[in-house]
Computed example of a mutant assay.
Amino acid sequence: MRESEFWANLDWAFPRGRGRSLAQDLFLSELGGASPAEALREGQPPQAVWNAVCQAMDLPESYRFLHRISSDDRGRLP
């Protein structure tokens, strides 16, 4: 996953700016107590950061690789 895909996933899963807010305000033990935005700035892999967000927010397993799902098929996700 590229960092741009991380942000696109976040925007899709948490629309209307909620994802960007979450990336700043959610501190995760899986990321060493960092927020997703901090973890990315520190050089953590975007997929690892996304996985931590998915786990913390209890997103369905199908969201783990959301960046590999076409925009047409995303409409069918829970």
Rank of each mutant, 00 (worst) to 15 (best):
1 M>K: 09
2 R>C: 03
2 R>N: 14
3 E>I: 10
4 S>K: 05
4 S>P: 00
4 S>T: 08
4 S>I: 05
5 E>F: 04
5 E>Q: 13
5 E>R: 07
6 F>Y: 11
6 F>T: 01
6 F>H: 01
7 W>F: 12
9 N>E: 07
9 N>A: 07
9 N>V: 01
10 L>T: 02
10 L>I: 02
11 D>K: 06
11 D>T: 11
13 A>R: 10
13 A>I: 12
14 F>G: 09
14 F>Q: 09
15 P>E: 06
15 P>S: 08
15 P>K: 01
16 R>T: 06
16 R>C: 11
16 R>F: 12
16 R>V: 08
18 R>W: 04
20 R>E: 13
20 R>V: 09
21 S>C: 11
22 L>G: 12
22 L>W: 06
23 A>D: 00
23 A>H: 01
24 Q>M: 06
24 Q>D: 09
24 Q>K: 13
25 D>E: 09
26 L>M: 07
27 F>N: 00
27 F>A: 06
28 L>N: 01
28 L>G: 03
29 S>C: 00
29 S>N: 04
29 S>H: 00
29 S>I: 01
29 S>G: 02
29 S>Q: 04
30 E>I: 00
30 E>M: 01
30 E>D: 13
31 L>Y: 03
32 G>R: 06
32 G>N: 05
32 G>S: 05
33 G>K: 01
34 A>K: 08
35 S>I: 06
35 S>V: 04
35 S>W: 02
37 A>I: 04
37 A>W: 04
37 A>K: 08
39 A>L: 00
41 R>P: 06
42 E>C: 05
42 E>Y: 14
43 G>Q: 00
43 G>W: 04
44 Q>E: 12
45 P>D: 15
45 P>N: 13
46 P>R: 12
46 P>M: 08
46 P>W: 10
47 Q>I: 03
47 Q>V: 04
47 Q>K: 13
48 A>T: 06
49 V>Q: 04
50 W>P: 07
50 W>S: 09
50 W>H: 10
50 W>E: 07
51 N>E: 14
51 N>I: 02
52 A>M: 03
52 A>Q: 03
52 A>Y: 02
53 V>K: 04
54 C>G: 05
57 M>A: 11
57 M>Q: 15
58 D>C: 08
59 L>M: 15
61 E>D: 15
63 Y>I: 05
63 Y>G: 02
63 Y>A: 14
65 F>E: 15
66 L>N: 11
68 R>N: 14
68 R>E: 15
69 I>P: 13
69 I>D: 11
69 I>Q: 08
69 I>N: 08
71 S>D: 13
71 S>W: 14
71 S>R: 11
73 D>F: 12
73 D>Q: 15
73 D>T: 12
74 R>V: 11
74 R>T: 08
75 G>Y: 13
76 R>Q: 05
76 R>H: 11
77 L>W: 09
77 L>I: 07
